[in-house]
Write a protein that binds this DNA or RNA. Structure first.
Length: 271
DNA sequence: CTAACCTCCTGTTCGC
DNA sequence: TGCGAACAGGAGGTTA
């Protein structure tokens, strides 16, 4: 599932090749989560000026306006230079002067949305409520602590909500909480400065390491060059219910929180 | 306002 | 072995 590391890995593998590419045609397959929001002809003739990331969104800056692209939970982007025909799950082709940017997304939770600018209603609805970027300087221990103090919800769900800090999805929330020694059920407002400090460091460590390893490929994620990620081999708890903790040997537990599975080690993570 | 639940979708896994 | 049911989950939307 694309979380911050997978989106960032995609961005890095794509930024150089698509910058300066001129869109020559737009091919749309089955509908995605939201409609494009403009006539495809608006895009044709425009150049891709830059590729940025905000949370789990990729922002493709155009000469005029920008495209917001989300990978949902099964999406991946490829940049292909041949004219291979789209497969059943290839739902967007942006044919450019340098190659074809192709969105592959079997479950179609992803989206590609045009916005006239970053401040307009369309963009603000999607980006406006997003929290801090965890790998940036704005994400500080103090800000994390303050945000946690403001919520009585379980810390795992505060992380997943994305209003305090973005990009931490189900895999990396469980992994960060393991590194921090905090059980996912602990209420945000019960986390003090010491644990907030550990969690802050753990989030940065986990996400940076995952980016380094090309993300996690649980099923079929790959970067724009088709290369898989390897972080899943370093997971301490995610997907390891019943298996012995790498640190203490006790069985990793799985629980449900907000319709999502959470994994933790009852020995290493304190309530 | 928050928090719990629902919804979209399809490939994979599970139980009988 | 086959088949339907359950499951996985990002995140906006709805409801209480």
């Amino acid at each position: 599932m694309p979380e911050l590391p997978e989106v960032e890995v995609t961005r890095r593998s794509l930024a150089e090749v698509i910058t300066g590419a001129r869109i020559e045609a737009v091919r749309l397959g089955k509908p995605l989560r939201w409609p494009l929001g403009c006539a495809p002809s608006i895009l044709v003739g425009q150049h891709m000026v830059a590729l940025r990331r905000r949370g789990k969104y990729l922002l493709i800056d155009l000469d005029k306006g920008l495209l917001l692209l989300h990978l949902g939970m099964s999406g991946s982007l490829r940049f292909i230079r041949d004219q291979a025909p789209p497969g059943v799950h290839d739902h967007v082709d942006l044919v450019t002067s340098k190659g074809v940017l192709r969105l592959h997304d079997p479950r179609r939770f992803g989206a590609l949305v045009y916005a006239a600018n970053e401040d307009d209603a369309v963009a603000q609805k999607l980006l406006g409520g997003l929290g801090m970027e965890p790998l940036s300087e704005t994400f500080t221990e103090a800000a994390l602590l303050a945000g946690l103090k403001a919520s009585r919800a379980p810390v795992k769900q505060v992380l997943l909500a994305g209003r305090l800090v973005v990009g931490v999805g189900n895999i990396y929330a469980s992994e960060a909480l393991f590194l921090a020694g905090i059980r996912p059920t602990v209420a945000g407002n019960l986390i003090g400065p010491i644990r907030a400090r550990r969690l802050h460091a753990a989030i940065k460590t986990v996400l940076a390491r995952a980016v380094e390893l090309g993300g996690s490929t649980l099923r079929d994620f790959s970067n724009a060059d088709g290369m898989a990620g390897h972080f899943q081999h370093e997971a301490n708890v995610y997907g390891r219910a019943g298996a012995p903790c790498h640190r203490c040997g006790r069985a990793v537990q799985m629980i449900r929180q907000g319709q999502r599975s959470s994994y933790f080690c009852p020995g290493c993570q304190r309530p």
